[in-house]
Amino acid sequence: MLLASAVSHAQTITLNFQGTSATTFPGGPGDCTNQVPIVQWTSSGLSGANACGSLQVWVTNSASCGATPATGSDGGTDMIIGTFSLATATSGNSNSFRFSDLPGLSGVGCSASVDISNAVCASVQYRASTVGDCTTVQAANLTVRYDNVPPDPPSVNLLPQDSQIVVQLSSNNDPDVLYYRVEYAVQPPSDGGANWFTLPDISANVTSKPIQGLANETTYLVRARSLDEVNNLSAYSDTLSATPEASNGFWAEYKAAGGHEAGGCNASGVAVPSLVGALVALVTLLRRRR
């Protein structure tokens, strides 16, 4: 009976960020004083009757959880964000905290160039049966990330075309890159400054993007930056130049050679009725076949 009871009522703790199903919550330089979402905890199979102590929720100083809050190997101390009695509740919310409170940032501050991931953990000891030692059940499925390290600048290649320049982009295998920001300008005289225009951010899944509406036989400068998930901007790529040139496709070459075709549907007087008549005859034959 006891065994069956233990199996049917497994003891678990689950954690989630309030208002989002994401298990990692990232923040960047602009988020230092912003609050991390409240951590919600829910227990199952646990109560005041079998708990050996209080449930603790904390943020570690590393990417993994220990059994209990502790002093991290890097000198930082885990931050407890809530202690709860299972005798009074089986779920609840942690205390609020800011990115700047993260244990991984203690001693260095938000302005440091760091990319840290701190795990959010919960644990409680419980007794599986009325006799015997207490064992620990814990949850470690959430992470808070603070990223102040810019991604690598993208590699850029330019293909000058007719009234446009195609910008080929590569993230250089940097997994943090989510977007590219491409800027272009007419190449100024040697003593002048360039007047840069910025394209809307381009997803890193896109490997080439045309800059359209450019003047042919005018030299343009193009440069790009990468953005990561918290809008850290990389340094600029190399600035490249390209000159769009008018080109002839087959149609332009045909017209230049004196072609008389004007495009559109040149339906001859007999062609359309012939086609329709033939189709009707085919359909009639098919229907007669049935």
Binding site: F250, W251, A252, A262, G264, N266
Partner: peptide, 11 residues
Amino acid sequence: EVVNGQSGAGL
């Protein structure tokens, strides 16, 4: 492709 307003498509 469009040349002098004429579209390069037809039947």
